[in-house]
Computed example of a mutant assay.
Amino acid sequence: MHPPAIGLGTFRLQGQQVIDSVATALELGYRHIDTAQIYGNEAEVGQAIAASGVPRDDLYLTTKVWTDSLAADRLAPSLEESLRKLRTDRVDLALIHWPSPGDVLPVAEYMTALHRAQQQGLTRAIGVSNFTIAHLQQAIDAVGADAIATLQIEIHPYLQNRKVVAFARQHGIHLTAYMSLAYGKVLGDPVIVAIAQRLGATPAQVALAWGLQQGYAVIPSSTRRDNLASNLHAATLRLSDDDMAAIAGLERGARLANPDFAPHWD
């Protein structure tokens, strides 16, 4: 049960800002919302969902377990706390947000704990985020590729993460692309701007469509109604093979999410 193709990301959105973003997105028709324990906004996301009147079963809600809760005895209690904040009895997807820093804890420990939390009904599906090929292989060894609903990683025209993508695909694992617009950096790219102009689309729609046409789910965030509405319509945009190839040529290894505890990337 992998996530719907377009979702709303909530990274860096706080307080009233995230409440308004989620409320507007739900009003516009978004049904996939992505948050995380470390974002510090689960309670506000839960508040906006409750106020929206959208039935819980119509939503696909993702959260991510932070690195301080990966131990076998901490993982499920941390998810229960997330559920309280989100005002729901389960999430649709729970991800390991980052591998254990320095691999202090083995992948098998937290993947097994996450799988147990799924069996307890705390989440419908489980997955991973920011995993390298080595981490992904260990996760597959621990719970099986079929149990991993998605791998969420940074993917945009300037960082295409081809090695990890190829490995995930080889094992039938779905991908969710975050930072699809590279914090707006790709929106002024001449290649993307030219395609957008030719198609009567926005550069953001082109960058999102490039991800969608490769089968990725995308979770752009925005606080502006017109951008939220416009992003949602990226699904209707069709890029030609030449367009796709031109954007593929923009790869430059420009990784943005690279904290000091990040793993050794492929």
Results as ranks from 00 to 15, higher is better:
residue 142 A to W: 15
residue 45 V to F: 13
residue 179 M to Y: 15
residue 31 R to H: 06
residue 153 I to M: 15
residue 203 P to D: 04
residue 211 G to C: 12
residue 156 H to F: 08
residue 107 V to P: 09
residue 118 Q to H: 03
residue 251 E to S: 10
residue 210 W to F: 02
residue 22 V to P: 00
residue 244 M to A: 05
residue 189 D to L: 12
residue 262 A to R: 06
residue 236 T to S: 12
residue 15 G to D: 05
residue 64 K to W: 12
residue 115 H to R: 11
residue 108 A to Q: 03
residue 65 V to D: 05
residue 224 R to Q: 05
residue 27 E to P: 01
residue 117 A to K: 10
residue 104 V to E: 12
residue 86 L to A: 07
residue 194 A to W: 02
residue 30 Y to F: 08
residue 250 L to E: 03
residue 59 L to Y: 09
residue 136 L to A: 04
residue 36 A to I: 00
residue 252 R to N: 04
residue 148 I to W: 01
residue 157 P to H: 13
residue 10 T to F: 06
residue 77 P to W: 14
residue 63 T to R: 14
residue 83 L to E: 03
residue 59 L to D: 11
residue 40 G to E: 14
residue 98 W to M: 00
residue 249 G to Q: 02
residue 20 D to R: 11
residue 148 I to V: 10
residue 107 V to W: 08
residue 204 A to S: 12
residue 109 E to C: 02
residue 62 T to H: 04
residue 136 L to R: 02
residue 152 Q to E: 12
residue 41 N to L: 15
residue 91 V to M: 05
residue 262 A to H: 06
residue 151 L to N: 12
residue 23 A to I: 04
residue 122 L to E: 03
residue 155 I to H: 10
residue 67 T to D: 06
residue 193 V to W: 09
residue 189 D to N: 13
residue 13 L to M: 14
residue 29 G to W: 07
residue 25 A to S: 14
residue 86 L to V: 06
residue 45 V to Y: 12
residue 68 D to F: 14
residue 34 D to S: 06
residue 135 H to I: 00
residue 258 N to A: 14
residue 104 V to S: 04
residue 28 L to Q: 11
residue 22 V to I: 00
residue 244 M to E: 05
residue 75 L to D: 07
residue 158 Y to L: 15
residue 118 Q to I: 06
residue 89 D to L: 04
residue 124 R to T: 15
residue 224 R to I: 05
residue 178 Y to N: 10
residue 242 D to R: 03
residue 183 Y to R: 15
residue 247 I to Y: 09
residue 203 P to F: 03
residue 98 W to S: 05
residue 102 G to H: 14
residue 145 A to Q: 15
residue 144 G to E: 00
residue 5 A to T: 09
residue 88 T to A: 13
residue 10 T to E: 06
residue 71 A to Y: 13
residue 69 S to Y: 09
residue 196 A to M: 10
residue 58 D to Q: 15
residue 152 Q to W: 08
residue 70 L to A: 01
residue 238 R to E: 12
residue 56 R to S: 01
residue 236 T to Q: 10
residue 174 H to S: 14
residue 167 F to T: 15
residue 187 L to F: 07
residue 125 A to L: 06
residue 176 T to A: 08
residue 180 S to F: 10
residue 23 A to M: 01
residue 54 V to C: 11
residue 241 D to E: 15
residue 62 T to I: 07
residue 62 T to E: 03
residue 259 P to E: 04
residue 65 V to C: 10
residue 220 P to C: 13
residue 260 D to L: 09
residue 1 M to N: 14
residue 22 V to L: 01
residue 55 P to A: 13
residue 204 A to P: 04
residue 63 T to L: 11
residue 150 T to V: 11
residue 144 G to L: 00
residue 118 Q to D: 09
residue 220 P to N: 10
residue 48 A to C: 03
residue 98 W to C: 01
residue 194 A to V: 09
residue 70 L to D: 02
residue 204 A to F: 01
residue 243 D to R: 11
residue 250 L to M: 04
residue 79 L to R: 11
residue 249 G to M: 09
residue 264 H to L: 10
residue 263 P to S: 06
residue 176 T to I: 12
residue 96 I to P: 00
